[in-house]
Design a protein around this nucleic acid. Structure first.
Length: 616
RNA sequence: GGGCCCGUAGCUCAGCAUGGACCAGAGCGACGGCCUUCUAAGCCGUAGGUCGCGGGUUCAAGUCCCGCCGGGCCCGCCA
C-alpha cells in the first residue's frame, strides 16, 4: 500500500516480535504533542509492560534497540513507555508530497472481487433522505474499496415481488394516466401511499393518523389521491386482491407481470435520475422476480430442507434446530451458548406464505448465493438498515448452513434519518424526497452565487456541485450507527464543517496553482519549516491508515472528518503564509505542498463523492 | 420480557476500534476583531463541559467490565 508511514509501523511490529512472544497486529502511531521529542510516537511500552512483566520504559527500550531504523526516520528515542520517532524531513516529506501529488496515497493492488449492494429501496415511492443515506454510504464504500484495490460491483436488488409492489399495482389500476411531464417515482409514490392508506382505512387501522396524512397527500394531487382511495375502498376484499397479485406475479402470469414490471421500471427510471444527480451509479440491477422465475429461490431453499418445517402451508426455517446441529449459526448471531441463543433469537423465520408465495428473506438467501456462488464474488457488503439486523443474520446463517463462509456476507448497517416531524413512512407519504432536498439546496447555493459576475450556466454548474457536496457531506458525516435527525439548517450550512467548506479549501489550492502558471520541477523539503506545514504534511500522511480504518470499521464518516481537519489546517495555512510571494526556494516548496494538499484532499473528495471544482 | 444501538458544551457532532502525550476537540449559535496582499463559503479571539448515573479493573478510564437511568430499533406469513 502506498503508505508513507507504513514502514514505521512495520518496523515496530517486527521489533515487537523479537521482544514479545505474542505478536501485535496494529500499532497506534500518532503525532507527539508539542514540547515532546520527535514527530511520531507510540505508547507501545505501556501496552506490553504487563504481558512481559517489565516496566513500560524497559519494554520501550528493548523494542527500540531491536528495531531496524526505518527509512525516513532519523532517530528513535524512548520517553517513559513511548517510543518516539524523529523523521528525516527531507526523505519523508518528499515521499508524502509525491504520493499525494500523484494521487496514489493509500492506493493498492488487486485484493479480490467484492459486491457492494446498496440503496435497493422498494420501487414504490421516490427515494427519500433515508434512502439517500443508504445510497451515499454504499457509494462511498464502493469508491473506497475500488481505490484500495478491490474489483467492485455495485448492485441494486429490485424488490418487486412483495406486498409493497402489490399495493402499488393495485392502486395504479385506479389511477388516471400519468402526465408525461411528471417524474414517475413521485407519481407512483402518491398512488402507493393512497393505496396503503385506503386499505388501512377499510381495516380501521390508525384511522386518525391516516386521515391527517391523506389530507396532506391531497395537496400534492387531489384527483389522483381521491381516485385511488375511492377505487380501493369500493373493493370487496383488497387484502385478498393483494395476495392474488403477488401470487400471479410470482408465478409469471403474463398480464400481471406486465403491470408489475411497468410500474417498477418507471419508478426505477426516476431513481436512476435522482441517484445520478448525487453521483451514485450502479453496475447492475438484479430483479427479485427473476430469482424466483429462474427457480433459483426454490433450488436454494431445497438445500436447507433438513431444517425446514411447515405451518398451515407456509414454509419456515427452524433456526434453533439448525443451531443444535451446526454451531456456525451461534457464531453468526454472536452467541457462545446454545441456551442463550435460544433465549434471544426467534426460533424460526418464514420463507413462504401459506399460498406458497416467497417472502423476502427467502429471495434474499437465494440472492446471496447468487452473488457469492454463481457470480463468484469473494465478499458482498449489504448496505441495509440497522433494523434489519435479525433478517441479515438469518440470511447469513442460512448460507452458512449451505457451507458458505458467512463472513463473506457483511451487513453494513446504518441508522435511519429522522425528520423533526418524526420517522419517514412511505406508506403514509410522510417523507422528504431526495429530489426536493437537492433542488432546495441547489436553489440556496444559486442565491449565494448571484451577483458575483458569473454566467447563468456557470452558476448552474457550480451550484449543482456544491449542492451535491453539501448533501453527501451531511449524510456521510455522522457515524452510521447513529440516527440522523434531519435538519435543514445543517444541510444548508455552507460554512465550516460542510461539503462546501471542503470544496472551498480545494478551490483555494487550485487557485494558487493556477495563478502560478506552472509547477516548478523540484523543491527542497527543508524549506518547509513552519509548524503548520509539518502538521499539514502529517495530516496528509495519515490518510492511508484512515482509509483502512474507515473500511474495516465501516465508518465512512472518518474520511469526512479527516477531510475537514485537512481543510481546516490548509485554510489556516493559506491565511498565514503567502505562497506565490514567498522567497525563492520557499515558494517552490510551498507550491509542492499546496499541490500535495490539493491531490490528497482531491482523493478524499473523490472517495466521498464531494465534487471537485476549481471555482466557487 | 429478551436482543441490538445511542447518551460528550445551549444545538449538531468528533474522540472509544488500539486505555497513555487530552488539565476533553470541532462546527453552529452568541460576543469582539481581520478584506489596497494567492477567492472573507475564510481567518483570529472570548464565553460555554460533574464526558447520563453508580461501582469495578488499572500505575493510568471519555475510552475496558458490571449494574442502573433515559431515548431509539428489532422480536411480522412486511421489507
Amino acid at each position: 500500500m502506498n503508505d508513507p508511514l507504513g514502514e514505521i509501523r512495520e518496523a515496530i511490529i517486527s521489533a515487537v516480535k523479537e521482544v514479545s512472544p505474542v505478536p501485535i497486529e496494529e500499532v497506534p502511531l500518532s503525532r507527539t504533542p508539542p514540547g515532546h521529542e520527535g514527530h511520531l510516537g507510540t505508547p507501545i511500552g505501556f501496552k506490553l509492560a504487563k504481558k512481559l512483566g517489565m516496566s513500560p520504559e524497559e519494554v520501550a527500550e528493548r523494542i527500540a534497540s531491536e528495531m531496524k531504523l526505518p527509512s525516513g526516520v532519523k532517530r528513535v528515542t524512548v520517553m517513559r513507555g513511548f517510543i518516539n520517532f524523529e523523521v528525516d524531513r527531507d526523505l519523508l516529506f518528499r515521499r508524502v508530497l509525491e504520493l499525494a501529488i500523484r494521487e496514489e496515497l493509500g492506493r493498492d493492488g488487486f485484493f479480490g472481487r467484492v459486491i457492494v449492494e446498496h440503496t435497493s429501496a422498494n420501487p414504490v415511492h421516490p427515494l427519500h433522505v433515508g434512502s439517500g443515506r443508504n445510497a451515499v454510504i454504499g457509494d462511498t464504500l464502493a469508491r473506497m474499496l475500488s481505490y484500495m484495490g478491490f474489483d467492485v460491483d455495485r448492485r441494486y436488488l429490485v424488490n418487486d415481488s412483495g406486498l409493497q409492489m402489490a399495493y402499488l399495482v393495485l392502486g395504479s389500476t385506479f389511477s388516471p394516466p400519468a402526465p408525461s411531464d411528471v417524474k414517475k417515482d413521485h407519481w407512483y409514490g402518491i398512488i402507493y401511499a393512497s393505496s396503503n392508506m385506503a386499505v388501512m382505512l377499510r381495516e380501521g387501522k390508525n384511522v386518525e393518523e391516516v386521515r391527517v396524512n391523506l389530507e396532506k397527500l391531497r395537496s400534492k394531487n387531489r384527483e389522483l389521491v381521491d381516485s385511488v382511495v375511492e377505487g380501493v375502498s369500493k373493493m370487496d376484499d383488497p387484502s385478498a386482491k393483494l395476495q392474488e397479485l403477488i401470487r400471479r406475479y410470482q408465478s409469471g402470469d403474463g398480464e400481471i407481470s406486465h403491470m408489475f414490471r411497468r410500474c417498477a421500471e418507471e419508478v426505477l427510471l426516476g431513481f436512476k435520475e435522482t441517484l445520478s444527480r448525487l453521483g451514485v451509479i450502479h453496475d447492475a440491477f438484479d430483479w427479485e422476480s427473476d430469482l424466483i422465475w429462474s427457480g433459483l429461490v426454490r433450488r436454494t431453499v431445497e438445500r436447507l430442507s433438513r431444517y425446514i418445517g411447515e405451518e398451515e402451508g407456509a414454509l419456515y426455517l427452524d433456526l434453533h434446530k439448525a443451531a443444535e446441529d451446526n454451531d456456525v449459526v451461534l457464531k453468526v448471531f454472536g452467541f457462545s451458548s446454545l441456551e442463550k441463543f435460544k433465549q434471544s433469537v426467534p426460533q424460526k423465520f418464514f420463507l413462504t406464505r401459506s399460498d406458497g408465495t416467497w417472502l423476502y428473506t427467502a429471495t434474499d438467501i437465494a440472492y446471496s448465493c447468487y452473488k457469492l456462488e454463481e457470480l463468484k464474488f469473494d465478499r458482498c457488503y449489504n448496505v441495509v438498515g440497522a433494523e434489519q439486523k435479525v433478517e441479515q443474520n438469518q440470511v447469513r446463517s442460512s448460507i452458512a448452513l449451505m457451507g458458505i463462509d458467512p463472513d463473506r456476507l457483511v451487513h453494513f448497517s446504518y441508522e435511519i434519518v429522522e425528520l423533526t416531524s418524526g420517522r419517514m413512512r412511505g406508506r403514509m407519504g410522510t417523507y422528504l424526497t431526495l429530489d426536493e432536498l437537492v433542488d432546495a439546496t441547489k436553489r440556496r447555493v444559486e442565491d449565494l452565487l448571484r451577483g458575483r459576475g458569473m454566467s447563468d450556466s456557470e452558476i448552474s454548474e457550480i451550484s449543482d456541485k456544491v449542492a451535491v457536496g453539501a448533501i453527501r457531506y451531511a449524510l456521510l458525516a455522522v457515524d452510521p450507527n447513529k440516527v440522523v435527525r434531519f435538519d435543514w439548517s445543517r444541510v444548508l450550512n455552507l460554512n465550516e464543517n460542510s461539503g462546501p467548506f471542503i470544496q472551498y479549501s480545494y478551490t483555494r489550492a487550485t487557485s494558487i496553482l493556477r495563478k502560478a502558471g506552472s509547477m516548478p520541477t523540484s523543491f527542497n523539503p527543508s524549506n518547509l519549516e513552519e509548524e503548520l506545514e509539518e502538521e499539514l504534511i502529517f495530516k496528509i500522511a495519515e490518510m492511508p491508515s484512515i482509509m483502512r480504518s474507515s473500511v474495516d470499521l465501516m465508518r465512512p464518516d472518518m474520511l469526512i472528518q479527516h477531510a475537514n481537519e485537512m481543510a481546516l489546517l490548509f485554510n489556516r495555512y493559506y491565511e498565514k503564509y503567502p505562497v506565490l510571494k514567498a522567497e525563492d526556494g520557499v515558494k517552490e516548496a510551498r507550491m509542492f505542498l499546496v499541490a500535495a494538499f490539493k491531490g490528497a484532499l482531491g482523493i478524499l473528495m473523490d472517495l466521498t463523492g464531494i465534487p471537485r471544482l476549481d471555482r466557487m
